[in-house]
Simulated scan of single mutants.
Amino acid sequence: MSADDSAADLAELLEQPSLEPPIGVTPDFDHNGGSHTVGYFVVIFCSVLSTLALLSRLGSRIALRRIRAEDVFLFIAYGLFVGYVYVIYEWSIYPGIRVHLWNLPLKNMENFLYGVHLASIFYGLAIMFLKAAILMDWLQIFVPTGQRNLLFWVLHILIWSNILFFASGTLIELFRCHPREKIWNPLFEGGSCPVDIKANNMASGLINLVSDLAILLAPQWVIWRLNVSRSRKIGVSLLFVIGIFATACGITRLVVLFELMASPDELYYIPDIGLWGIGEMTAGFLIIGIPSAPKTIKSMPGSDSVTSLLASWRRGSAPTNNRDVMPPPRSPLTRKPRGLWEISDTDTFQLVSVKSASATQHVQPGSTEREVSV
């Protein structure tokens, strides 16, 4: 066969569907049935929320004039998140969400598979840095300085296990085929791919879900031991409802992975998995960003004027009586009450005492209690 004949055969092959359609189904490359709106909405909405959460955290750190290791991890996670979102956004443009593989010509399959490879790398590294940032931040918030209590060790185990797991998973994705071009080129001949990537992704999804649940539940027992009112405990605990959403995204992502394992129609399921991954990471950014919002708002120019204006409107709308009542004297030492959601750094918000996790510890006369901000 001549070179021209080989080139003609290859060109004809590239125009064929990427997967043989079911009996009675005709491939349609021009009207593939994909949804674009869902992808655009999830990408834009979650990107805005994640960016606002990051800016909230940045504002609080600027106000404190302090940047810690978890803040660096958070910025790295955000950069990787942007790369991940860009891949999903490209899929939303073409071919769309929930497109069957037989409606995609083989010539476009390489770009799709290369995007899957990039998205897998971005997701693993972004989740690794994001979870590390959250857990390191909780070490500062919930573990009193110098203590080595149960929560201290639980958080450290979660930090290092997540780093080891996602770092190893990223290396597996990078080098699962030899040569690497075989990962994304469906026409590459030769080489080998010894890793069963579907089974690996399923195991990764299960471990990631367990990690989400552990991160969600770890600080709850500390929150309910805080020496504050029950209503404030409930308010602080409700902040972690966002963690429930992250866990729900992880569960749904795992369900779609099960469906993917039972089907060769990769194009139909993988973009869905990508969208749920965006939701999971967005919840992570909100978990670390929302507690910083009160400090950021208070540090903004004009925030005191707005607060005073709202307070004056509230006083003006309050019912009055005809008796002249002398207002009680205001003590100059009275502190402004903290907002319900202010749970940031110990040097930022009012401190409350918390009992030690060990039942055998006692406060010695003349010593000071350990304190943690809520």
Score class of each variant (00 low, 15 high):
Phe285Ser: 00
Leu213Tyr: 13
Val236Gln: 05
Val236Leu: 14
Ile290Arg: 00
Ile223Val: 12
Gly277Arg: 02
Trp224Ile: 13
Thr247Gly: 14
Leu216Glu: 03
Asn201His: 11
Ile287Pro: 00
Trp276Gln: 03
Gly289Trp: 03
Trp221Lys: 13
Cys249Val: 07
Ala218Tyr: 03
Ala283Lys: 07
Arg230Gln: 14
Ala214Val: 11
Ser229Thr: 09
Leu238Ala: 15
Arg253Trp: 09
Asn227Ile: 09
Ala262Asn: 10
Glu280Ala: 05
Pro264Ser: 09
Val256Ser: 00
Ile223Gly: 06
Ile234Arg: 14
Asp212Thr: 11
Thr252Met: 12
Val222Glu: 09
Trp224Val: 15
Lys233Asn: 05
Gly279Gln: 05
Asp272Val: 15
Val210Glu: 01
Val210Tyr: 02
Ile273Trp: 07
Phe285Leu: 03
Phe285Trp: 02
Ser231Ala: 15
Leu217Tyr: 12
Tyr269Phe: 12
Val222Asn: 10
Ala203Pro: 04
Leu213Met: 13
Val256Glu: 01
Val236Ile: 15
Asn227His: 15
Ser263Arg: 01
Arg225His: 12
Phe258Val: 05
Ile234Pro: 00
Leu257Ile: 08
Glu259Ala: 13
Ile273Asp: 08
Thr247Ala: 15
Gly235Glu: 01
Val241Arg: 07
Gly284Asp: 05
Thr252Asp: 00
Ile278Leu: 10
Asp265Thr: 06
Trp276Ile: 06
Phe285Val: 05
Ala262Arg: 07
Ala203Val: 12
Arg253Gln: 14
Ile215His: 02
Gly284Ile: 06
Arg253Leu: 08
Val210Gln: 00
Thr247Trp: 11
Phe258Thr: 00
Leu216Phe: 10
Leu260Met: 08
Val255Tyr: 07
Trp221Tyr: 15
Gly277Tyr: 01
Trp276Lys: 07
Ala283Val: 05
Ser229Arg: 06
Ala262Tyr: 05
Val228Ile: 15
Arg232Glu: 04
Gly205Met: 01
Val222Gly: 02
Ile223Cys: 07
Arg225Asn: 13
Ser204Cys: 13
Phe240Ser: 10
